[in-house]
Design a protein around this nucleic acid. Structure first.
Lengths: 156, 156
DNA sequence: TATTGTTATACTCTATAACTATA
DNA sequence: TATAGTTATAGAGTATAACAATA
C-alpha cells in the first residue's frame, strides 16, 4: 500500500510510455506495424500456438488478435493449420518468410534500444523488465474473465 | 549496453503495458477519456501553461494536444486566456469545474491503483516510477526536434 | 521567414456485438 | 448450450500536412 502522490506519479509515467513505444515503432518496416510485429515475436519465442493463447499473450481481445493474425497471414509470414484435436481451432506457426521478417525486426529493435539505452546498466534494464512483468501480473490477476453480461465503465 | 535477449524481453513487456493502461482507463467517467484526463492532471500539477509546453509534457504532437484541449474546454473544465506576451499563444488553466473533475479522477485513479497494487511495497512503486522516468528521458534526449523536412519511418 | 496553434485527413489499435462452425 | 474464431462497426489516439494569425 502506497501513498497517493506515489500513485499519481506512477500514473503519469505510465501514460508517457506511449511516446517510447511510438518511437520504437518508427523503426518498423511499413508493411509490418506494431501489432504484426508482436504476433511474429510471440510465435518466434513460444513456437506454434492457437489463437486463444496468442490473444492472452498479446493481452488483447481475440477479435483484435484475429485481425493482426490475418494481416501477417496475408503477407505469408505465418500459416494457419487446422487443429486435429478441435476443428474449431487453428494452429499458428511462422513460415520461413516470417522467420526472415522476424530476424529483421529483431535486429532493428535491438539496435534502436541499444542506441537509446546506451548509458543504462544491464541491471537497470533487467529491473525495469521485471517490474513491468510484475505490474502486468498484478493487473492480470484481478481482471475478471470476459463475461457475457456487460459493462465495466463507470458512468460520470 | 545490454545483451540482445534482455532487450527483446523489455520490448515485450513494454507492449503488454497497453493492457494495464486500458484497465486503468475503465475507471474514467464516460465524458472524460484518457487524453482529457492527462490534460487536467498536468494543469493540476504544474499550473497554467501554454499549448506548446503541454504538448511537450504529454509527449505528443501539438495537433493532438489541440484536440484534447478543445475537448476539455468544450466541457468547461479549462479556459484558454489570451497570452499578453504573445498574441499567437493561449494560456490554459483549470476552471473550478475542472478542479472538481480532477479531484474525482484522482480519487478513482488512486483507488484503482491501490487495489491492483495492494501487495506492492512502496519501494517497488517508487522504483518502477523512477525507471519509467529514466526511460522516457533516455528517449526524449535523442529525439530530434520536429523538423520540416520529413520522413523517419524506415521502408521495408 | 519562422513560430503558435488549429483543422482536415488518414491510419493503427482497440472493444463490443453479431455471426459461423464446431464441441 | 458453450466455445473458437471471424467480421462489422464504432471510438480513442496519433501523426502529417495545409492553413491562419502573429512575431
Amino acid at each position: 500500500m502506497a501513498a497517493q502522490p506515489r500513485y499519481e506519479d506512477l500514473g503519469r509515467q505510465l501514460s508517457a510510455i506511449g511516446a517510447v513505444k511510438r518511437e520504437l515503432a518508427r523503426s518498423l518496416p511499413v508493411e509490418c506495424p506494431a501489432g504484426s510485429a508482436a504476433v511474429l515475436a510471440l510465435l518466434g519465442k513460444y513456437g506454434e500456438m492457437r489463437m486463444s493463447r496468442l490473444a492472452e499473450l498479446l493481452a488483447v481481445d481475440m477479435s483484435v488478435t484475429s485481425r493482426h493474425v490475418a494481416h501477417v497471414a496475408d503477407r505469408g509470414w505465418i500459416e494457419r493449420s487446422p487443429d486435429p484435436d478441435d476443428r474449431r481451432s487453428r494452429i499458428l506457426h511462422l513460415t520461413p518468410e516470417g522467420s526472415d521478417m522476424l530476424r529483421t525486426l529483431s535486429e532493428r529493435h535491438t539496435a534502436a534500444l541499444a542506441h537509446y539505452l546506451r548509458d543504462w546498466s544491464d541491471d537497470d534494464v533487467d529491473q525495469l523488465s521485471a517490474l513491468l512483468t510484475k505490474l502486468r501480473n498484478s493487473f492480470g490477476d484481478c481482471r475478471p474473465a470476459r463475461s457475457h453480461t456487460s459493462p465495466t465503465r463507470t458512468p460520470a
